[in-house]
Design a protein around this nucleic acid. Sequence first.
DNA 1: TGGAAACATTTTAGGCCTAAAATGTTTCCA
DNA 2: TGGAAACATTTTAGGCCTAAAATGTTTCCA
Lengths: 167, 167
Amino acid sequence: MDNTVITDADSTPRLNHETRLHEDDHHSIKLWLRLLTCSSLIESRLRGALREEFDTTLPRFDFLAQLERVPEGLTMGELSRRLMVSGGNVSGIAAQLVGEGLVDRSPLPENRRTFMVKLTPKGRKAFSRMAQRHEQWVIGLLGLLEPGEVDQLMGLLDRVKQGLHQA
Amino acid sequence: MDNTVITDADSTPRLNHETRLHEDDHHSIKLWLRLLTCSSLIESRLRGALREEFDTTLPRFDFLAQLERVPEGLTMGELSRRLMVSGGNVSGIAAQLVGEGLVDRSPLPENRRTFMVKLTPKGRKAFSRMAQRHEQWVIGLLGLLEPGEVDQLMGLLDRVKQGLHQA
DNA sequence: TGGAAACATTTTAGGCCTAAAATGTTTCCA
DNA sequence: TGGAAACATTTTAGGCCTAAAATGTTTCCA
């Protein structure tokens, strides 16, 4: 009873964040740990696939994805906000992608503090190849859900987001 | 239409992973990005709180949490599986926690390849102080949800997990 | 108009994390 | 019984990430 581990239908022990819960732990904690487990698992599958198939990383992919839909480019600060990572981090990733020729970073004439970052043609091509595979992977990972479940889950996660924005 | 950003009720622009979606992007991708946004936001709140209040990190906290419910201790490999991180990572964090006196790592007499890792009394006390606050934070972050919503969300995330384990 | 404050970005120091190679131990079996 | 294979862990090289300090630019206002 003390050391039991929740098991799947096939009774494979399920080892992950949730294993640390006591019987009486709070529902919110349990929910948070399940959320974390899901996104960690998906993230690690995607990271592995990007590495194997394109020799790149998820942060680089996300960076390119943000630029892809804004042809006029984004500033470093906007990228930082959209990617939800620190400015310092954006600086580092941008420098690498510039080095790889996928991204162009040029100072704004009207404000010498800011830089405008855009995809290069090469970057646009590379991203579109990756994005296609990426979508297939995600569909493969989440495809078990019925359309109705997807909608329900979207709605509930939106409620979670609402709560976070006001907390 | 091209550059619109989803807004909250108060019309604050919502800048995060989801901003990169085109109108016609696939539902699975949208769901994945929303999941990622939620867990990134929660994670970053908890990380900040742990740093400010206890000058520690989420990985260290998670490490201690796994040990807390298993008084006889865990091997490095078990910790790696439960925390869903690489063995090398567990080695590093364990070394730090041993240095801080929160954790004890001793070789197993019957198998000199493996180490048994346990909380020290100091580690147990430190963890229980942190865990109490941690639970309050999580409840604060997810508390907006009704109990019924929590149950629904748990069920749907479990479906996601099922899908991942077979994919 | 000159200097403080705000702003955008980069640098720094240090922790987290991974994959792959290396190390040491145990098991297995020809 | 000796060596290959499996196993548990650590080391290595390198990318990601943060907070805080530093740098350079612009704005604001007394």
